[in-house]
């Protein structure tokens, strides 16, 4: 019981997200209407993804400091589950997009290229590609210690390169392209205080859920390693 308090917290926060998130009054924005509630669900996926990738990098650093293969398993599993949340983020984003951004008179495929150019989407696409590349790199090396070391190095390097991308580029591009940042859906600065009351707990809930799933996977992999070692 002592160790599982955060799992209880996860469940409580998730219930809060799903009930209060659907019940609170939200400001009525023209194109968004009620879909603004997706902030708690769709954007929560990205919050969870970024958290999981961050934890993965922390474990890669721990691996390089201790050379304990346990941390390599941690790093791998956090990256995998982060990718799962990223894919869910894309799937939900596609649904949301096709009923808000995409013009009903315009087929989705034609408006897709305009949508894909959004700086925020570039950031997440890069993040996903980096971790797919991380998986490719892992699979290309057969020696276990070597794989752990090289992939940890790549993980740290890529993450360090990714961070400026996600934080700076979206802030920079609109200033280079004035007049093109008129998209209400991506302008989360005008989130109302009531929505913030749900937004932050929701993000924490999704991130914790991701961590929970990952710990289960880690326990499974460690068991498997032990079984193979016998």
């Amino acid at each position: 019981m002592r160790k599982s308090w955060w799992k209880i917290l996860t469940v409580i926060l998730l219930i809060y997200t799903f009930t209060v998130g659907l019940l609170i009054k939200i400001p009525d924005l023209p194109a968004l209407e009620q879909t603004a509630r997706n902030l708690f669900y769709h954007v929560g996926m990205w919050a969870a993804m970024m958290t999981l990738f961050t934890v993965s990098v922390v474990n890669s650093i721990r691996y390089l400091r201790t050379l304990d293969l346990k941390y390599d398993i941690y790093a791998r599993e956090y990256a995998t589950v982060g990718l799962v949340f990223g894919i869910l983020g894309y799937a939900t984003g596609a649904i949301w997009m096709s009923y808000t951004w995409a013009d009903p008179n315009n087929p989705l495929f034609e408006s897709f290229s305009a949508v894909a150019r959004e700086p925020k989407l570039i950031g997440t696409a890069v993040a996903m590609l980096i971790y797919f590349a991380y998986m490719v790199l892992r699979n290309s090396i057969s020696d276990m210690d070597k794989r752990a070391r090289i992939s940890a190095v790549y993980n740290i390097f890529a993450y360090a390169m990714l961070f400026p991308t996600i934080w700076i580029v979206p802030r920079l591009l609109p200033s280079l392209h004035p007049g093109q940042d008129g998209n209400p859906a991506l302008n989360f600065k005008d989130v109302s205080p009531e929505m913030r009351m749900v937004e932050y707990p929701a993000f924490i809930a999704w991130a914790l859920l991701g961590v929970w799933i990952t710990t289960v996977k880690i326990r499974l992999s460690i068991l498997k390693e032990r079984k193979l070692a016998q």
Partner: peptide, 14 residues
């Protein structure tokens, strides 16, 4: 190339 392309996209964009 696989490892590098995602990393270089932002710089190339800038």
């Amino acid at each position: 190339a696989v490892l590098g392309f995602p990393l270089i996209i932002p710089q190339l964009l800038l």
